[in-house]
Design a binder for these strands. Structure first.
Length: 429
RNA sequence: UCCUCGUUAGCUCAGUCGGUAGAGCACUCGGCUGUUAACCGAGUUGUCGCAGGUUCGAGUCCUGCACGAGGAGCCA
């Protein structure tokens, strides 16, 4: 088995050789402390002058921040180390002495760090976030694959907008106009009627001038869609799904959560079932809290945060006014002025992480909705076809990956949850 | 698009009343055998965002613009 820092505990007492970069060096005369990283984690290498060759000592002395090297050393259990282990260095083979590294040990501003995002992702904190993002993606696929969902990829170049609400990125498709996908949902409905339970996992593009800690121009969404599933079951699947994701991160990313200083006791409470509150009750609650909001108005960020603070788990807000929501959402048969939809709001002010609904299955009602929203019947002919040929009740939802990562990691801004964020006014690097 | 704040050394910032540019870090050299943003001593570093204006004199005051941050709206 190949030794890495992640599995270094299996090599105690043995000599290992690792390909590493020097993160930071501290020296104290005749002893050097090398903070080494290999991508899987960080470990401290100790170089003692009296125990190594002059060549090794001089090599250690010459190492600059982010220099690359092969290091040989004996793995030793050590209580003084944060990870419990240290490397007693016996040999150093320099690969490259790095030039003066821009990101220093001292603090930096956001703009500087974002300009150096390609290097910033090497730092312990950023590495931990991206590792957790990877684990979240793994857990998402694991849950869906184990629960009968088939991965289906909707197109990214699309002829029209899916919901007609957001600003889309425009491009040319030879002589035609085309837009980057803002949601694969309508295509996933077609796929659900072909394969039963399906999900998509892909990038999404919104040309909105949004400039907040919760918004990216390019972000990743997971959109499951399920035939023969109605509103209530849709919510149950969502809460099981989110619980599974959180449980997986708690189990497999202990060290990363520790690096981030995340209060894991808050994550440990995230177990299904989740609390539910209707839109009606949410409005009532907000009015009692002194917010100036009336029935029929949408929630802003402060409203969502106030609602989330009531609970220590994510909370579903259900039965929104039909007027506020997308054209394809199914009205409650007992109360057509509200829809069978729910937003899942994460705790601690991270906002909406899931939006979902039961979809309209009646062809006549869907046609009426198209007329009400001034949508082109011609462009959506294929979508209306789904209701003509064996229409069934079906539901689905969309999980925003970066907001989920931000919440689980407990970090301020979604820009740190994706390797190379596309933000308003930032396309580099 | 709107509101607020900001832009001074490679980085993070200070700069009083308008009087001629400063600190810490980084880097270089030296010291230190358990360091944790290590520490101690010495050295190097400037188109004060850009364009105008007021003034004997502008980093400092005024106007415009650009860029960034936080928030709102929009949105997920």
């Amino acid at each position: 088995m190949l030794a890495t820092i992640k599995n270094i505990s299996e090599f105690v007492g043995q000599e290992v050789r690792l390909g590493v970069w020097l993160h930071i060096k501290r020296s104290s005369g005749k002893i050097h402390f090398l903070q080494l990283r290999d991508g899987t984690g960080f470990i401290q290498g100790v170089v003692v002058k009296s125990e190594v060759s002059e060549e090794t000592w001089n090599a250690s002395k010459s190492l600059t921040q982010e220099s690359s090297l092969y290091v040989t050393g004996i793995v030793r259990k050590d209580e003084r180390s944060k990870i419990g282990y240290e490397l007693n260095v016996t040999g150093i083979e320099i690969i490259q002495i790095a030039q003066e590294y821009p990101i220093t040990k001292k603090e930096h501003g956001t703009d500087f760090l974002m300009d150096h995002r390609h290097l910033w992702i090497r730092s312990p904190r950023q590495r931990a976030i991206l590792a957790i993002r990877g684990e979240i993606i793994r857990a998402i696929q694991e849950y869906l694959n184990q629960n009968g969902f088939t991965l289906v990829d909707p197109p990214i170049l699309t002829p029209t907008s899916a919901e007609g609400t957001t600003n889309l990125f425009h491009t040319k498709y030879f002589e035609e106009d085309a837009y980057l996908s803002q949601s694969g949902q309508l295509y996933m409905e077609a796929a659900a009627l072909a394969l039963g339970r399906v999900y998509s996992f892909g990038p999404t593009f919104r040309a909105e001038k949004s400039k907040t800690r919760r918004h990216l121009i390019e972000f990743w969404m997971i959109e499951p869609e399920m035939a023969f599933v109605e509103h209530e079951e849709n919510l149950q699947i969502q809460e099981e799904f989110v619980s599974h994701i959180v449980r997986s991160v708690l189990k497999n990313c202990k060290r990363e959560l520790e690096t981030l200083g995340r209060d894991v006791s808050k994550l440990e409470k995230v177990v299904a079932p989740f609390p539910r509150i209707t839109y009606d009750n949410a409005i009532e609650f907000l009015q009692q809290e002194g917010f100036d909001i009336k029935w029929g108005e949408d929630f802003g960020a402060p409203h969502e945060t106030a609602l989330a603070e009531k609970f220590d788990k994510p909370v579903f807000i259900t039965h929104f006014p039909t007027e506020l929501k997308a054209f394809y959402m199914k009205p409650d048969p007992n109360r057509p002025e509200v829809v069978l939809a729910a937003d899942l709001i994460a705790p601690e002010g991270y906002g909406e992480i899931i939006g979902g609904s039961q979809r309209i299955d009646d062809p006549e009602l869907l046609e009426q909705r198209f007329k009400d929203h001034n949508l082109s019947m011609e462009a959506y002919k294929w979508y209306l076809d789904l209701r003509k040929y064996g229409s069934v009740p079906h539901s689905g939802f969309g999980l925003g990956l970066e907001r989920t990562v931000a919440w689980i990691c407990g970090i301020e801004h979604v820009r740190e949850t994706i390797p190379f964020p596309r933000l308003l006014n930032r396309l580099y690097p």
